[in-house]
Design a protein around this nucleic acid. Structure first.
Length: 492
DNA sequence: CAGCCTTTGAAGTTT
DNA sequence: AAACTTCAAAGGCTG
């Protein structure tokens, strides 16, 4: 794995991540017996990024950026084209259900022996109706779609693309069956046993079972599957979703349900190309159902908290496979939508948070603002007792820089806390040491949205219900003597 | 019914 | 360049 040994020295700021990772108490043993070092994973992380960006011929990124100028127009065109295609190709094939192909085998040229580790490392990415996985979406791709190059792609796509053997067009790279999915062997078919079984993937079943009968899927009729989820090449892709709202809404209401003739016949909506999933998102997708089953939770917010903890509890190899998957996701996404930019989707979700933050006069803001507020020297003074110049840890906790110190070491009084003089606590930094899990306390918890100042005047009902759910989940766990980690960080 | 919650990571924008 | 913001998924919940 060239990335691991690249030694590029590019940490990509993984330090914070690694710190928090390292501080996961239940990781200690794993860390010791792990062949990877933290540095290794950091290198891997950075290399995963680097490869897709630097390894591609010079210009994948540049091309993408270069296209930004004309991007809007292009995208409009592109989407119009999609719409057109959709109209043309709407043979009614896709309308019943999303033509998802849940499993994809990922031979990995970047990993010794073609995999990150034994069988368990061969991750099959599952994508069901509400979000077919981009990689899985490759399954329906016939070679025609990529050879020599998709119509929408620059002819030199392969050159600007990933630095890989040229034979490594996507179909080859992902071991697509010759002749496309139409001739896909049963073993790779819908709901069939994936070639790369996941040792602990508990969600495949639920996801699969939740899918409509395979007979309703135009599994292999890719030429007829053009629609809102279709790429202009005719390649179905989960990243393309109609802009009619959330994807999940769309999936539930359109793809997942057998009857939407009326809706479907309405105005052809311009599909939205969604961001490729990152490693954690892939992990969540895979493990969600398992957590739901184990913890008898349904609320995603609670589940995500658990998953976040479990993510940190993963070994480096385990995480690495998701980073690798995510890297491939990005590569594929980039190949499919060379002109796409994450910016395209900016502003599509409205942010009330932004409004909240704007009127929050107690927000210490950036370390720079924080220092300014305390009259500290921007260059030489530390913001807060954390002694970090980059980011005040107290700010991360959502509070003020209590007792910031100036360069001469003198303490500076902090302004009043936003809420009753009590700065919000970082969930990972309990006010009193928890004897149960002191080692879980990260020295420098990774910045997280929840750490930003929040208006806590009154517990939200959602929080209450969340807590209730979590508690009931924990009770359930205790009751059944499960050893699943369904506990959540004590928050607020 | 849009948006929130909640997580991490990638990639965007702002300072 | 660092800091900050937005969006990916998910589904229950809220206003």
């Amino acid at each position: 794995m060239p990335q691991l040994s690249s030694g590029g020295g590019d940490d990509l700021g993984a330090n914070d991540e690694m710190i928090s990772f390292k501080d996961e108490g239940d990781q200690d043993e794993k860390i010791q017996e792990n062949a990877f070092t933290e540095r290794d994973l950091a290198d891997l992380k950075s290399s995963l990024v680097n490869e897709s960006e630097t390894n591609q011929s010079p210009n994948a990124a540049a091309v993408r950026r270069g296209q930004q100028n004309e991007h809007r127009g292009y995208q409009e065109k592109h989407r119009e084209h999609l719409d057109g295609v959709s109209k043309h190709q709407d043979g009614g094939m896709y309308k019943t259900a999303y033509p998802g192909y849940p499993f994809l085998m990922l031979p990995d040229p970047y990993i010794p022996n073609g995999s990150m580790s034994p069988s368990s490392n061969k991750v099959s990415v599952v994508q069901q109706s509400h979000g077919m996985h981009p990689l899985t979406s490759l399954l329906p791709y016939s070679n025609d779609h990529f050879n020599p190059s998709p119509p929408h792609l620059p002819t030199d796509m392969s050159q600007k693309g990933v630095h890989r053997p040229q034979s490594q067009d996507i179909s080859g790279f992902y071991s697509l069956p010759q002749g496309g999915v139409g001739q896909m062997p049963p073993s790779m078919g819908w709901q069939s046993q994936p070639v790369y079984p996941l040792s602990s993937c508990g969600f495949r079943q639920p996801y699969s079972s939740s899918l409509p009968n395979s007979s309703s899927y135009p599994r292999f009729s890719h030429s007829l599957m053009l629609g809102p989820g279709m790429h202009s090449t005719g390649i179905p892709h989960p990243a393309i979703v109609p802009p009619s709202g959330k994807q999940d809404h769309y999936d539930r209401n359109v793809y997942a349900k057998p009857h939407q003739e009326p809706k479907r016949e309405k105005e052809p909506k311009k599909p939205v190309i969604k961001k490729p999933l990152n490693a954690f998102m892939l992990y969540m997708k895979e493990m969600r159902a398992k957590v739901i089953a184990e913890c008898t939770l349904k609320e995603s917010a609670a589940i995500n908290q658990i998953l976040g903890r479990r993510w940190h509890a993963l070994t480096r190899e385990e995480q690495a496979k998701y980073y690798e998957l995510a890297r491939k996701e990005r590569q594929l996404h980039m190949q499919l939508y060379p002109s796409w930019s994450a910016r395209d989707n900016y502003g599509k979700k409205k942010r009330r948070k932004r409004e909240k933050q704007q009127d929050s006069t107690t927000d210490p803001g950036s370390p720079k603002k924080c220092r300014a507020r305390f009259g500290l020297n921007q260059q030489t003074d530390w913001c807060g007792p954390c002694r970090r110049k980059k980011k005040c840890i107290r700010y991360l906790q959502g509070g003020w820089c209590a007792s910031p110190t100036s360069s001469d070491g003198s303490a500076i009084d902090s302004p009043p806390s936003p809420v009753d003089g009590v700065p919000p606590q970082h969930p990972s930094l309990p006010s009193s040491p928890s004897p149960a899990s002191p080692s879980h306390i990260p020295l420098h918890p990774k910045p997280s949205k929840q750490h930003t100042p929040r208006i806590l005047s009154k517990p939200k009902t959602t929080e209450l219900s969340l807590k209730a759910l979590i508690e009931s989940s924990q009770q359930h766990d205790n009751l059944h003597h499960h050893h699943h980690d369904c506990t959540l960080p004590k928050s607020h």
